[in-house]
C-alpha cells in the first residue's frame, strides 16, 4: 500500500518534469536555453518515472532494467547535449538578445582590439605581449594560432630581446615543445639578469612539467643576483612544500626572510615562520 503511494508520487512528479521540459522547449527564447532546460528536466523526469515503475513491479529484473536505463541516461544525455551545443556554437547559431556573457566572443573581440592597437604602434611591447597571450587562449576556430603568436613574438624579439625570448618560450611551452621552450626561457633569464617576470616564467614552466629541483635551482641563481627580492624565496618555499623536496634549501629561504625582518612585509614573515616550523618537523620525521 505504502509502495503504491510512493511510486504514484514518483511517476507523477516524473511526468510533471517531462511536461515542464516540453513546455520549456516550446517557450524558451533561444537554442542554448532550450538545450539546458530539456537535458536536465528530461533526465530527472525519466529517472523518476522508471524508479516509480520498478517500485510498483517489485521484481529484481525490473529493478536491473530500470537501473541500466537510468545509468545510461545519466551518462549519455549530458554528452549528447554538450556535443550538439558545441556543434551549434561552431555553426554560429544565434544567441537570444538577452544573453549577457559570451566569453569566447568577448575574448575574440579583445584580441582584435589589441591587434589594431599593436598594428598602430609597433614599438609598444606590452600591448604585443598581451596580444600574444590572448591569441594563445583562443581556439583555432576564432583566429587563435600558435604560428601567428610566434610571428608576433619574433617581432618583439627585434625590439626587446629579453621580452621576446620570454614570450616565445611561453608559446613553445603551450605547444608542448619542451626543449625549445626551455632554451628560450633560459635565454630570456640570462638576457635580463633574472628579472622578476622572466624568472617566474621559467619557474612556472618547470613546475608545470613536474621538475621542482630545476625550478629551485633557477630561484637560487636569481636570489644570488637579487637578494633583496622576497618573492623568490616565498615561491621556492611554496614549490618545496607542494612537491615535498629539498628541505634544506626551503629552511634556508625561511631563515633568509626571517633574518631581514625589518624590511619584509608582515604577510611574508608570517608565512615564512609557519612554513619553517613545518619543514623542520618534516626533516626530523625523516
Amino acid at each position: 500500500m505504502l509502495i503504491d503511494i510512493i511510486s504514484t508520487i514518483l511517476i507523477t512528479t516524473g511526468s510533471l518534469f517531462m511536461l515542464i521540459a516540453s513546455i520549456g522547449i516550446l517557450k524558451l527564447p533561444d537554442f542554448y536555453t532550450r538545450m539546458s532546460a530539456i537535458t536536465k528536466a528530461s533526465t530527472l523526469g525519466l529517472g523518476l518515472v522508471l524508479l516509480g515503475i520498478s517500485l510498483l513491479f517489485d521484481q529484481i529484473g525490473v529493478f536491473a532494467k530500470a537501473f541500466i536505463i537510468i545509468s545510461f541516461l545519466m551518462l549519455t544525455n549530458p554528452i549528447g547535449a554538450h556535443a550538439i551545443a558545441r556543434a551549434a556554437y561552431k555553426q554560429k547559431i544565434k544567441l537570444s538578445g538577452k544573453t549577457i556573457i559570451d566569453e569566447l566572443l568577448s575574448l575574440a573581440q579583445k584580441a582584435s582590439k589589441q591587434e589594431t592597437a599593436w598594428l598602430r604602434n609597433k614599438t609598444n611591447v606590452e600591448i604585443a605581449e598581451e596580444l600574444v597571450y590572448t591569441i594563445i587562449r583562443l581556439p583555432a576556430s576564432h583566429g587563435g594560432s600558435y604560428s601567428k603568436a610566434l610571428e608576433i613574438a619574433h617581432e618583439i624579439l627585434k625590439i626587446d630581446p629579453a621580452t621576446g625570448y620570454r614570450v616565445a618560450g611561453v608559446i613553445y611551452s603551450k605547444m608542448g615543445r619542451f626543449e625549445k621552450a626551455e632554451k628560450h626561457l633560459e635565454q630570456a633569464c640570462e638576457l635580463c639578469k633574472y628579472s622578476h617576470k622572466a624568472t617566474f616564467a621559467l619557474v612556472n614552466f618547470y613546475v608545470e612539467n613536474n621538475l621542482p629541483n630545476r625550478a629551485l635551482n633557477v630561484i637560487e641563481a636569481a636570489m644570488k643576483i637579487h637578494p633583496e627580492n622576497f618573492d623568490f624565496p616565498i615561491k621556492a618555499i611554496h614549490i618545496a612544500f607542494d612537491f615535498e623536496v629539498s628541505n634544506k634549501f626551503a629552511i634556508w629561504c625561511c631563515n633568509k626572510i626571517i633574518e631581514q625582518s625589518h624590511v619584509t612585509p608582515t604577510e611574508y614573515l608570517l608565512q615564512a615562520s609557519s612554513f619553517k616550523r613545518y619543514f623542520v618537523e618534516r626533516s626530523m620525521g625523516k
Binding site: M18, F31, R34, M35, G45, L46, L73, I84, A88, I93
Partner: peptide
C-alpha cells in the same frame, strides 16, 4: 534551425521511453 530539431527529437525519444515504461 537544425540543432533545434535535433534537440526536439532527443526529447521526443526520451518521452517515448517514458511512455513505453
Amino acid at each position: 534551425t537544425l540543432p533545434d530539431r535535433v534537440t526536439a527529437f532527443d526529447l521526443f525519444t526520451t518521452l517515448v521511453i517514458a511512455s513505453i515504461a
